[in-house]
């Protein structure tokens, strides 16, 4: 079972690669007129079929399919095809990813969140599942998929190549229903934050592009959705995730009280969770303050994501604390 899971992860990485390449092709071929909604119906089916996306969030998209010009530009057609392939590949990858997680959990006879390897796998899965939900609702944002699949390939490959550990059971301190409550919410919110950083970076690039910058990273943004839509998505994802993250931290404190006798002890993991929380609170504040520019606010969100990464990787690697079950 565990070997099957490992293989599935490899296949998932390959599928993400395919998706990334297709997105890149779409990018290269596409022009301004090709936007939105390559067969939204099909995407919706795919999500429903496998990705295990939180079902209640799928709301039927009322987006009208943009009129296809009779002078069907062949390049545009091919670009659309590449986009469709990319979305299908992403969905397939997400399904493989999910099955890999499930088999890993079955092999370990517990939730697959016991060490860093499993943790990264789950967080990335949440990210991609949420992305498919976003795609169904807002097909016009599809081109962000290039960045998303890039992040996926990088993180999942890092997990497999660097962080991999064989299946082991949990130590007694982790053996508690709080484990499920705390870790599942942390994983879920981390996944959404992970997804949130994609439109955030895209927004920063696109905004630069719209402001007339034509140097390297900004030129990539030429075919991205409009800056306002990206900014909005960034905010929606972060506003959605922040309370979940808050809950996760509180649940962690309740658990720590039961296990270690104190709700909060400034252990390195706790300290970095605090830092992330404060930075994201700063983002929400900045966005609500009219005198703070939207790109400044968005930078704060990106910074917040770096603090999450620091907690996920850095703390396990550099520091030791009560949370040191990372398995490196």
């Amino acid at each position: 079972m565990s070997a099957l899971s490992d293989q599935l992860v490899t296949f998932a990485i390959l599928a993400y690669l395919v998706a990334m390449i297709s997105h890149a092709v779409e990018f290269a071929l596409g022009n301004g007129r090709v936007r939105a909604a390559a067969a939204p119906q099909r995407e919706r089916e795919l999500v429903g079929a496998g990705a295990g996306a939180p079902g209640g969030m799928i709301v039927k998209s009322a987006e009208p399919t943009p009129p296809v010009t009779p002078v069907a530009d062949r390049a545009a057609g091919r670009a659309r095809l590449a986009g469709l392939v990319a979305v299908v590949a992403t969905a397939v990858a997400a399904v493989l990813h999910l099955v890999a997680l499930v088999t890993r959990g079955l092999a370990a006879d517990r939730m697959p969140w016991g060490n860093m390897y499993e943790f990264v796998l789950t967080v990335t899965f949440i990210g991609v599942a949420a992305w498919l939900v976003v795609l169904v609702k807002r097909p016009s944002l599809r081109k962000l998929g290039l960045f998303l699949t890039l992040v996926m390939v990088l993180l999942v490959a890092t997990a497999e190549l660097v962080l991999y550990v064989p299946v082991v059971p949990l130590v007694p301190a982790l053996n508690s229903y709080w484990f499920v409550v705390h870790v599942s919410t942390i994983v879920f919110s981390s996944g959404i934050f992970l997804l949130g950083v994609v439109p955030a970076v895209a927004f920063l690039m696109r905004r630069g592009y719209e402001a007339g910058k034509r140097s390297f990273p900004y030129t990539l943004a030429k075919r991205l959705p409009a800056a306002a839509a990206l900014e909005r998505l960034t905010f929606v994802l972060h506003a959605f995730s922040f309370p979940i993250f808050t809950f996760a931290v509180i649940a962690g404190a309740i658990w720590a009280e039961a296990a270690w006798g104190r709700p909060w002890g400034w252990d390195p993991k706790e300290t970095w969770a605090f830092i992330s929380w404060v930075v994201y609170a700063g983002y929400l504040h900045a966005r609500a303050t009219p005198s703070v520019k939207r790109n400044v606010a968005t930078w704060i969100a990106v910074l917040g994501f770096f603090t999450m990464l620091m907690n996920l990787f850095g703390v396990n690697i550099f520091f030791t604390g009560l949370h040191s079950y990372g398995g490196l």
Binding site: E63, V133, S140, V236
Partner: peptide
């Protein structure tokens, strides 16, 4: 304006 709507209903 459809394109102005939120990506996700919060």
């Amino acid at each position: 304006d459809g394109s102005d709507r939120a990506g996700m209903r919060e």
